[in-house]
Design a protein around this nucleic acid. Structure first.
Lengths: 138, 138
DNA sequence: GTAACTGCAAAATATTTGCATCCTT
DNA sequence: AAGGATGCAAATATTTTGCAGTTAC
């Protein structure tokens, strides 16, 4: 059975396997960034830990997901959207973490205005983490 | 022997112990953010791992240092400067990571301009990680 | 003197590696 | 068929906890 997840995998030239489909589906369904342990909670009974680790690494390498940094230093992963996938030319990322529900999502249409850096610093890439209250928790 | 590190400890109402002084001195000398393992490399022979972990946790709790997020998901710690220490009212932080030397430092005089968020999102705190080339590596 | 700090041992977590087997293309 | 992906076992790495002894104030 082909699902839309498999379409995504195919688009990234990844073999379509059960674990990849399931993990990918989890990202799509949730819509926010997931940490390794978030994923493990859902599917560790189904798939081996190692498989989850390797799947995430593969996804990052191929650009299916990207790393997101939580305020507490927890590494999470989020689906890449049109702005960040396919090209390596995106130089900024904004993520929003809700202080109530704790979910982190990509904010692709929030441009980071120019930042004035001290003399001598050359900026190449921007990563902004905004914390606050999301619409659902308001 | 009283050093300036002890003054800092005293200012934060922390007991002045050898491990705290040494770890604090390391931050002062380096001037950039250090990860746990950076610190361990220098002083694990002198102090126990556990002591280093606990010292870092104490420093964060008391506001001597704050957490800094590396682009790769590595958690680092940086000395708090006047802008972030003592008060809990700082709502933004900018860090610069050099792509050449890999060092991360606090940029306290780079204000983050207003960011336009999608409707319904309320921002409270900003954390910006800028990556590029620092003056020393230029 | 007392509460706080440290070191040691050990537990709990987290992540990685090697290899044989299985599956997608 | 062949290369890639998975599962299992086990090695490594990372972080935390308990407790007894030590130290700063």
């Amino acid at each position: 059975m082909k699902t839309s997840d498999d379409q995504i995998l195919k688009a990234y030239r990844l073999r379509s396997t059960a674990s990849r489909s399931d993990i990918l589906r989890l990202f799509v369904q949730r819509g926010y960034a997931l940490s390794y342990s978030d994923i493990e909670k859902e599917i560790s009974s189904t798939y081996d830990r190692v498989t989850v680790y390797r799947t995430l690494k593969t996804f990052v390498d191929k650009g299916v997901v990207h790393k997101v940094l939580d305020n507490e230093g927890v590494l999470k992963y989020a689906l890449c959207n049109d702005h960040c996938s396919h090209t390596e030319h995106h130089h900024e990322h904004t993520h929003f973490k809700c202080l109530r529900c704790g979910h982190t999502e990509c904010i692709s249409d929030a441009n980071i205005p120019a930042v004035v850096l001290p003399k001598g610093y050359q900026a190449r890439e921007f990563n902004l983490l905004i914390q606050g209250i999301c619409p659902k928790c308001e």
